[in-house]
Design a binder for these strands. Structure first.
Length: 695
RNA sequence: GGACGAUUAGCUCAGUGGUAGAGCGCUGCAUUCACAUUGCAGAUGUCGCAGGUUCAAAUCCUGCAUCGUCCACCA
């Protein structure tokens, strides 16, 4: 054996041995309760980042349960990541001076498909480099036909039961990316913008968006506001930029008398509050901003201008015509922006598919409150219930090509929608006419990933070999969902809602949240900041075991952590310590002489085994790793090995102790422990990964 | 405006009722001893602040401060 542990010589070889040996596949035993984790599917076309390495917690659980004898499945997958991927692909197109509009839909789809599949293997090999014991024979892609069919079936059932409906309302629309979003994809940022006090008939009113004035259909005041009470219900005459026009005054509680002058213009097509006011007062809608982010014909000479330019021109013209009273230049407010590209989100009126959330969320909340799903750490239970209580109906339509096209066809005669489980209908379900046109939109990616736990396990449904068709019945509900807390509303809550709806059972019995990884200064890692640490580089330099151990050591569940290379180096040293302790033990000649401290040693070893096991069962991997590190280094190595040199501990007992440590440490540091286990004298030929946990 | 988290050794963080902990760093000593990716010895903290509960509080309660995160339609 070499004097130092060299991870490069070991990791590839060991992983191939595991994979070839089929050790990642569960041994199904109907009499035993399985342990199941579904890996949160990384984007198929993107490299892993350090955050993905936190899934090591799932590998720790998986390896532990495999060793205690549970039929254990950790199922891998890849996400087509609709919007994210199309966004990246469009950037690639832009480099070649092309855009998505240069290609027919099916050609574009094919191009993105190829793009994704060229990159897909990369991510999967990175998961292997981390040592993840995923059952690759069950690998699933979100666009696999069986998954698509499952998602379509759910959509149809939701539609048939009135839980999905077509609605025309204001949508969060990014005019740059050309798609609408759900509320969650909107990022609110604080910003300073001029607040224009403009003359509006008999009033002066404040607005940051004078360019939308062509879409005004009323003026609103608070009904309790004494200053304006007499105007409510009356019509006012306003000198506009285009012409003189008449405008109704309505009283509405949404108006805050203390803001501005207490008078607001109502632009129902471009403001959520105004839209609500319009609904209450039956006001017409006038769309002045188009989906291209330019003003429509309603804006007369300003038509065709982009919003920003239009605002400047409108303000300029109003200034020269004395229509602006004054401008508050120090006004700060929050603006809705696209979470991806930062463009200001325009609320625009658009017909979309919505999931009625209330009935689904009620079920989900009930399941959490009744402890059908345990939440680790506990504090996130409150977050989840808050989210479930506050969710608005979910817009699942996206104006994208990359994704599952919505299986809904609109009748050209009666305008009714026919929804199927994917097959093209030959007639309208209402009027039976045959001229139908499919919705051009695709599903929000989260609508499909929200069904991931059962969609993955149902993947075969009798179509493939037998052992897989029974997966759903055997492995569902899954044991643990382990993910970063930042996708709690996007993903976890939706999985619970859709899981309960479709399967009548929770999708997982426990949800464990890990924190985010930040750089050594505590800042969020991002490509633009240039502080991203590549997990592969760290693995190359320190070994996968060291990286893995440093991610769980000293990290409480749900807390963010700053990663530092110093820490990883320290854990590499620990792997090396393990290596050398094992080297020492293997160098010993076997003998049967008893040592006077043997009993005491065994007792302490038992205590450690018991403690670590109990920590594992309680999801306290941090405590387990610390106890193992501390006791192995400073007790087993510093004291026991020294005692063994003096004959106080027998060599047999020392050897047994080491075997226990290799087993206990295996979930955390699978490579070095496996390598050493197989080097131990008297190894019986069974790999450590499928050996039994010490008791 | 609301919610949540953090505040503990120089740095990064564990610890949730019973005499303050780890990693890294620091100081001194040790080198043909399994390991210098090492060993031995050592220093360092009124556990954010102020009250309260308790025989006992870093830990529970109340209030405050600072930092951070998420949410929220003030035009």
């Amino acid at each position: 054996m070499d004097k130092a542990y060299d991870s490069k010589l070991v990791e590839g070889k060991i992983y191939r041995m595991w994979e070839k040996g089929g050790y990642f596949k569960p041994k199904i035993d109907k009499k035993k309760k399985p342990f199941t984790i579904i890996l949160p599917p990384p984007n198929a076309n993107a490299d892993l980042h350090l955050g993905h390495a936190m899934y090591v917690i799932e590998d720790i659980m998986t390896r532990y349960h495999r060793m205690i004898g549970d039929p254990t499945l950790w199922l891998p997958g890849a996400d087509h990541a609709g919007f994210e991927t199309q966004y990246v692909f469009e950037k690639e197109l832009a480099k070649k001076d092309k855009s998505r509009f240069d290609f027919p839909r099916d050609v574009l789809y094919k191009m993105i498909w190829d793009f994704v599949h060229e990159n897909r293997g990369k991510m999967e090999n990175q998961l292997r480099r981390l040592g993840f014991s995923l059952d690759w024979s069950r690998n699933v892609f979100t666009l696999d036909q069986t998954v698509v069919t499952t998602v379509y079936t759910t959509f149809k059932r939701l539609f048939d039961e009135g839980l999905v409906y077509r609605g025309l309302r204001l949508v969060n629309y990014c005019t740059k990316d050309g798609t609408g979003f759900s509320d969650l994809e909107v990022k609110h940022v604080e910003r300073a913008d001029p607040l224009y006090y403009m003359k509006y008939g008999p009033f002066i009113l404040a607005t940051v968006r004078p360019e939308t004035k062509f879409g005004d259909t009323a003026v609103a005041v608070n009904p309790k506001d004494k200053r304006y009470k007499k105007w409510i219900g009356k019509e006012i005459e306003v000198e506009g930029l285009l012409r003189k026009f008449k405008m109704k005054v309505v009283g509405d509680d949404a108006i805050d008398p203390s803001f501005g002058t207490g008078v607001a213009k109502v632009t129902p097509s471009h403001d959520f509050t105004d839209y609500e006011i319009a609904k209450r007062h039956n006001l017409p809608m006038k769309q002045v901003i188009g989906f291209d982010g330019r003003l429509t014909d309603i804006a007369g000479p300003y038509a065709g201008l982009k919003v920003k330019t239009a605002r400047e021109k409108v303000v300029e013209e109003m200034k020269t015509r004395g229509m602006i009273d004054h401008i508050d230049e120090n006004y700060t407010h929050t603006v809705a922006t696209c979470y991806k590209c930062g463009t200001v989100i325009e609320p625009l009126p658009l017909e979309q598919w919505y999931v009625k959330i209330k009935p689904l969320a009620t079920q989900a909340t009930k399941a959490i409150k009744e402890k059908k799903i345990a939440v680790v750490p506990r504090r996130f239970e409150k977050h989840m219930i808050q989210w479930l209580t506050n969710f608005a109906d979910w817009n699942i339509s996206r104006q994208l090509v990359w994704g599952m096209r919505i299986p809904a066809w609109k009748c050209q005669s009666c305008n009714e929608w026919t929804v199927t489980e994917g097959e093209e209908p030959n007639q309208c379900s209402k009027c039976h006419k045959t001229k139908l046109q499919q919705d051009t939109d695709t599903f929000d990616t989260w609508f499909s990933s929200g069904q991931w736990p059962f969609a993955t396990l149902r993947v075969a449904q009798g179509k493939l070999s037998d052992f897989r068709s029974n997966d759903f019945n055997y492995f569902y509900p899954t044991s643990v969902m382990e993910t970063a807390y930042d996708i709690l509303p996007w993903w976890v809550c939706r999985m619970i809602m859709l899981g309960l709806y479709v399967t009548n059972d929770v999708p997982f019995r426990t949800v464990y949240y890990h924190g985010l990884i930040r750089d050594s200064k505590g800042q969020k890692m991002s490509k633009s900041k240039g502080n991203v640490l590549n997990p592969l580089r760290l693995i190359d330099q320190y070994g996968a075991d060291a990286l893995r151990f440093s991610l769980v050591f000293g990290t409480a569940a749900g807390n963010d952590q700053s990663i530092s290379e110093d820490k990883i180096r320290g854990m590499r040293n620990f792997a090396n310590k393990l290596w050398n302790a094992a080297r020492f033990v293997t160098l010993l000649q076997s003998e049967t002489k008893k040592g006077q401290q043997d009993i005491t040693f065994k007792k302490e070893m038992d205590r450690i085994i018991h403690k670590v096991t109990s920590y594992m069962d309680k999801f306290n991997f941090n405590a387990a790793s610390e106890l193992l590190y501390e006791s192995f280094w400073h007790w087993y190595c510093d004291q026991i090995i020294e005692q063994a040199k003096n004959g106080k501990i027998s060599k047999t007992v020392l050897h047994e102790g080491l075997l226990s440590y290799l087993k206990l440490l295996h979930p955390f540091m699978p490579f070095v422990t496996e390598e050493l286990y197989q080097k131990m004298p008297g190894w019986n030929g069974t790999p450590l990964i499928v050996s039994s946990w010490p008791v």
